[in-house]
Design a protein around this nucleic acid. Sequence first.
DNA 1: GTCTATAGGGAGATAGAC
DNA 2: GTCTATCTCCCTATAGAC
Lengths: 205, 205
Amino acid sequence: MSTADRLIESTRELLWERGYVGTSPKAILERAGAGQGSMYHHFKGKPDLALAAIRRTAEELLGTAEEVLGGPGTPYERIEAYLLRERDVLRGCPVGRLTMDPDVVASDELRAPVDATIARIRERIARIVEEGKRQGQFAAHLDGEEVAAAVLATVQGGYVLARASGSPAAFDAGVRGLLALLRPAAEDGTTTERDAHVDPAGHGA
Amino acid sequence: MSTADRLIESTRELLWERGYVGTSPKAILERAGAGQGSMYHHFKGKPDLALAAIRRTAEELLGTAEEVLGGPGTPYERIEAYLLRERDVLRGCPVGRLTMDPDVVASDELRAPVDATIARIRERIARIVEEGKRQGQFAAHLDGEEVAAAVLATVQGGYVLARASGSPAAFDAGVRGLLALLRPAAEDGTTTERDAHVDPAGHGA
DNA sequence: GTCTATAGGGAGATAGAC
DNA sequence: GTCTATCTCCCTATAGAC
């Protein structure tokens, strides 16, 4: 791994752990095992290095999300897989946490990849919800964009609840709560008062 | 307002805007119009002052939440009121945002009021959901604690989405999405495939 | 109670040797 | 490309005068 790569990787780790404001060039250099000269040779400064790190993290997160959301299964199952996918809950979201960083939000350049990542995942989920509506798996009155926002918010907010309590349990509870609200009647496993017309094969209504 | 109060208030504002790591005693003193001596006379240091500020903010937030959650209306309406209550969305949650602060999470003392506040609101919402279940307004298979976690997570995560995009729209979308999933069939305003046995008077099944 | 002075260390960046 | 030296300013805290 090149020095520039090591710098980026160290920055990614520190941004995740301590955020932008809490991350100093010195800490990055120590973790990367590099000197100041290396950093200022490859990057213009802290914001420039952070931008490279954020872009890489954003790309990776987008890939991870697409792996699950583009996987097999019904729309509900794919959203379920996204919500239940393995996460390092107490570490939080490496992209979402940046929105709490005043310097990141204040910089259009640093915020752009954060915004783009979240927007793309949200659009992806929205399309899946719309697909589920066409298949009769989700109620017709639901709005894809809105449900997608609720799904994403539950994940991002789940991290907040988990970190507040110091335990991943609250994250899991929120996810289970949302899934229970989202679950098609056919998968309820209960004698339900709901009576959705579900197409179990998932090939459309 | 006493000097100690001005210090606490300035700290509250700065913690909200910039978090713990991003807030320096110097900035606090400037905003409060006080000198270093005042601060170190009334407080042991930055963590001590921050603790006082966090406690006050937590108490205030708890009061605001109880105002809405303890208000009139059916269980659904009270949760709706909580989700739709006026918020300074782009500023985020003054308590929730602290969970992204490494120094706050690392300190049991600073994290305690954050944890307690979120836990209490969650328990309050959970009780309301259970009440709604008894009244037949919410499906019997829902778990109060889980739905409450989903509600809180949607709010906390909504702030993340909003700040990422620089617009409150995403917060509102997430809230609307969750409310659509939570809404009793009787209030759908659509010819629905759901068929819940709702008790419109809200006096129990 | 509040002020100014002082202090050791870190943040963020530049310069120039190798 | 990478290193060390250096620089200025800020961070957090203490001391002691008023």
